[in-house]
């Protein structure tokens, strides 16, 4: 069995006397779709930034693609793709130009770029729009493009930070098909979302409350554990538990 893509052991991040992430422990296998859920301010973004090598952990240990996130950040960055909810793509360039730009940034040769562009265009059905300016395309296309760019260098792990906010239900489903396609080729997908129903697309999910992972399992087992109909109900239950401690509201 191959080694895990992501491994975190007692990962902690403090800002002053505020602990944003408390003892994070998780392990994600290659090709897995891992849903990383939690309320606003629960510490999701902080945890994700640490795993991407963008933020140094205060203590604990984590490896991503086999590299230490606090000491081998350059190697970590080379092996991951990242897509944020604000998509860092250029509106005033065409799809093709964006792809070329980012493949150069990731150090692909022009032959490799051509090759990847062809593959992605077929896989994600981008062909007809390659020459269009990004600003003229609907949101769904921008998401497709942002995702293509995140996987342009064939990273072993791709991090998606709320990739689907604001699109229509069909585009959202097509996007999840893209994710599933990518995962089936062995790429690990680590995704945050505010749509609780999207948790159901994930192989396993974790729910974070106040900097700590409260639950981590397959969606089905989590629902059974809380005897809840949907992930949404699980989420509410967890939040209600938290509310019993009034100091932690907000």
């Amino acid at each position: 069995m191959s080694s895990p893509s992501i491994q975190a052991h007692n990962l902690v991040k403090t800002f002053g006397n505020f602990t944003a992430v408390k003892n994070l422990n998780l392990e994600v296998q290659p090709g897995e779709i891992f849903g990383f859920l939690g309320a606003n301010g629960a510490g999701k973004t902080t945890a994700m930034r640490m795993l991407c090598g963008l933020l140094k952990p205060s203590s604990g240990h984590a490896t991503v693609a086999g590299f230490n996130v606090s000491t081998q950040t350059e190697h970590v960055k080379k092996n991951i793709g990242y897509m944020s909810q604000k998509f860092s793509i250029y509106d005033d360039l065409t799809l093709k130009e964006n792809i070329q730009l980012f493949s150069t940034i990731y150090g692909l040769t022009s032959a490799q770029t051509q090759e990847r562009m062809k593959q992605l265009a077929i896989q994600f059905e981008l062909e007809d729009k390659l020459k269009n300016l990004v600003s003229t395309l609907p949101l769904g296309w921008k998401q497709k493009l942002a995702f293509s760019i995140a996987v342009i260098h064939q990273p072993r792990i791709v991090f998606l930070d709320e990739p689907t906010s604001g699109v229509d239900p069909m585009t959202r489903r097509q996007f999840w098909e893209m994710i599933a396609d990518t995962a089936s080729t062995g790429t690990t997908v680590f995704v945050t979302t505010h749509y609780m129903d999207e948790a159901e697309y994930c192989d396993r999910v974790s729910i974070m409350v106040d900097g700590q992972i409260q639950v981590l399992d397959t969606p089905q087992k989590i629902r059974e554990q809380f005897s809840a109909q949907t992930m949404d109900d699980v989420f509410s239950l967890l939040a209600r538990q938290k509310k019993t401690n009034p100091k932690q509201i907000l």
Partner: peptide, 10 residues
């Protein structure tokens, strides 16, 4: 409720 977590949305 856009961008707000499920509990706050509720």
């Amino acid at each position: 409720t856009t961008g707000v977590d499920p509990v706050s949305r509720k």
